[in-house]
């Protein structure tokens, strides 16, 4: 069911029959199948999310029909899980560092990429973008081998370094999009009106870039908070939240996982919504 298939049917009918009833039917189908398709795709994207949230309130220990009744007990169990709290704190700690580092390095890198004029810019661009296109699994094992070789003990610190590698390019891209959309003449005008370089930077450049930087930072935090593969291979004995969820999932289905999932989803969703509101400002 591609666009090609649908439109080819329509045009074949047009060519042979002109305004025949057949053509009217086809027009009606081709007029409505896309919104229906869009609704189905949204249903597909949200099905697992909806199921998790729904069953986090179900009484039975098995997540399936029939419905056994409403309960909040999985949320109570979740709040009393010490290892869960600890791994969440670890994730927040790692996320804070990664966000700060990636935002600074990514913003500076974006300035170099958009405003800089230097030889081998193409090579620089490839090198700072490639890490976000490489599967996390490859990066994870490569970092494990590297840390092992240079004698870094794996801990939350190595997780931070590893996450910085693939998170920073996302910030760089977000900020450089903003930087490219902004007219350098604004800066020149400020300079002409007597502003110093520092004043121009603080009063013109930074405020214009700020939405890009903040949305980049929020993306960075989300990516770090959700990362499993880098943390899985480079965290040593310490747990981040995704690793804890993973280990719980390995032991079979447990309604507490539904409750944790619902909270994680709610958290990510609010971050993304804030970020998007800023981006579209």
């Amino acid at each position: 069911m591609s666009v090609d298939a649908a439109t080819s049917d329509g045009s074949a009918a047009e060519e042979s029959a002109g305004q025949s009833p057949m053509n009217t039917v086809l027009n009606a189908v081709s007029g409505y199948w896309m919104p229906v398709w869009a609704i189905l795709v949204f249903g597909f994207l949200y099905a697992p999310i909806a199921v998790l949230i729904l069953f986090s309130f179900e009484q039975g220990t098995f997540s399936g029909f029939p419905w056994d009744g409403f309960t909040m007990q999985w949320y109570v169990q979740m709040v009393n899980d010490d290892r869960l709290i600890q791994s969440t704190l670890n994730s927040l700690y790692v996320g804070a560092f990664v966000t700060t580092g990636a935002t600074i390095l990514g913003t500076l890198g974006a300035i170099a990429l958009v405003r800089g004029s230097f030889r081998r810019k193409g090579l620089f661009r490839a090198l700072v973008i490639a890490p976000m296109t490489i599967p996390g699994l490859i990066l994870g094992i490569a970092l494990l081998l590297w840390f092992n070789m240079i004698g870094f003990n794996t801990s939350l610190r190595t997780v931070m370094l590893g996450q910085l590698v693939f998170v920073t390019p996302f910030v760089l891209i977000t900020v450089s999009a903003r930087l490219r959309g902004f007219d350098p003449e604004l800066e020149e005008a400020a300079r002409d009106l007597g502003a110093s370089k520092w004043q121009t930077y603080r009063r013109v450049t930074l405020p214009i870039l700020m939405p890009g930087i903040i949305s980049g930072a929020l993306f960075a935090f989300t990516l770090s908070f959700d990362d499993f593969l880098i943390a899985f291979f480079t965290s040593g004995v310490e747990n981040t939240l995704p690793i804890y969820i993973w280990s719980k999932v390995q032991h079979g289905t447990d309604p507490v996982i539904n409750a944790i999932s619902a909270m994680v989803l709610l958290f990510s969703i609010s971050l993304i919504v804030i970020s998007e509101l800023l981006r579209q400002r």
Partner: peptide
């Protein structure tokens, strides 16, 4: 934004959702 939300939420959690389904 509705497309972005699943895109940026934890993938282990979402795959676990499919396991239940």
């Amino acid at each position: 934004v509705l497309v972005m939300i699943p895109f940026w939420t934890n993938y282990i959690v979402r795959v676990y959702g499919w396991q239940i389904i």
